[in-house]
């Protein structure tokens, strides 16, 4: 099966579940997630933000290491090679 050609990715962080542990920021191999310290979750945890989404290749590292199941990663691929995440 030819590697699905990915057009772009999207990373969604659920701000209710996130508790600012910063693991996603630390483990994103491409530095696409940053906690600037000026945004907070409703419970007052530091909320990470997505920066340079173009550099994200939907590797999933942020999702694996998130202990709150707060992150979903989506990707747009050309039809025919859709894969269940």
């Amino acid at each position: 099966m030819a590697k699905a050609k990915m057009i772009k990715a999207e990373v969604v962080i659920d701000e209710v579940r996130c508790r600012g542990c910063r693991y996603c920021e630390k483990f994103c191999p491409r530095g696409c997630i940053v906690i600037r310290g000026d945004r907070f979750t409703p419970e007052g945890y530091l909320l990470p933000e997505i920066v340079d989404i173009e550099r994200c290749n939907a590797c999933g590292a942020c999702v694996w290491m998130c202990p709150s199941f707060a992150i979903d990663v989506y990707r747009w691929v050309e039809a025919g090679e859709a894969k269940a995440g």
């Binding site: 939907a58 990663v73 990707r75 691929v77 050309e78 894969k83």
Partner: peptide, 18 residues
Amino acid sequence: NNSIVKERAWGRPELCLD
């Protein structure tokens, strides 16, 4: 032309209930 499909690449495993 290949239409573009959005799929979920990674998220909470199904066996981990919400």
